[in-house]
Design a protein around this nucleic acid. Structure first.
Lengths: 121, 121
DNA sequence: GATATACTTCGTTAGTTGACGAAGCAACGG
DNA sequence: CCGTTGCTTCGTCAACTAACGAAGTATATC
């Protein structure tokens, strides 16, 4: 029940769902998610931590960068089931079209450029 | 996205999840859910309304009684998918064993007896 | 080492939520 | 009608949460 509630709570905030879906195209560095969402680093860090603790997202540290990707085979059965459902339920969601556009921009930039942008704000 | 968030928010509260699962054995009157949860009628009414608005539950009014049952074919594709996932994820959940016991007691009682009990509290 | 960079932790603040009880509404029973 | 009963609505309160910025930590780079 607790694992289930951790998952549903993680999925019950729009910002977190957008962050989760931003990983559909593959792994992203935290600074890329920050740029994508346009929120304060501390806020995004906390969101990603929540997604991770729910098991929906895996993290990988490489130097100073924290990379996140969607949960895979290493994650719990419950988290993978939730992820499968969420991705299916939100497939083609119209209200997320803008996000996809912004995201492809973020993905094209190098990490340095993204970081510079986040530094400037 | 809004429909999705309505569903995840509905599922992100333990009490609501317990109420939802209490309908697995078939339709229940609100007063039975009240007795099952042991909460104030106004509180339970609001919880069931939220579940209904998320599409996870259908309601039926018969005289003074409000009956609730799990979403069926009349509900949205999204709600049915969510329900399928939630039921599967929580199948056999150990922490809900007590609930099942209490629930079978509530189901055995007639509606009048349940109401009397709820009146007394 | 010193500086910068990527991220996290902490404290604050505004808005949300779950609980309750009181009062209201609707349907049945006298 | 009039009271009772099942449920809903409303106002209140305590607890939680998302957002921020400031300060802290860890990892490169000079």
């Amino acid at each position: 029940m607790n694992a289930f509630l951790d998952i549903t709570k993680a999925l019950s905030d729009e910002t977190r769902v957008r962050a989760l879906l931003s990983l559909r195209g593959g792994e992203l560095c935290l600074c890329q998610v920050i740029e994508f969402l346009g929120l304060a680093p501390s806020t995004v860090s906390k969101h990603m931590d929540l997604l991770h603790r729910a098991g929906l997202v895996e993290r990988r540290k490489e130097g100073r960068w924290q990379y996140f990707r969607l949960a895979g085979k290493e994650s719990s059965r419950e988290a993978r089931g939730a992820l499968r459902w969420a991705l299916e339920a939100l497939r083609g969601e119209r209200s997320l079209k803008d996000d996809e556009r912004v995201l492809s921009g973020v993905r094209k930039k190098g990490l340095e450029e993204v970081s510079a942008c986040y530094r400037a704000s």
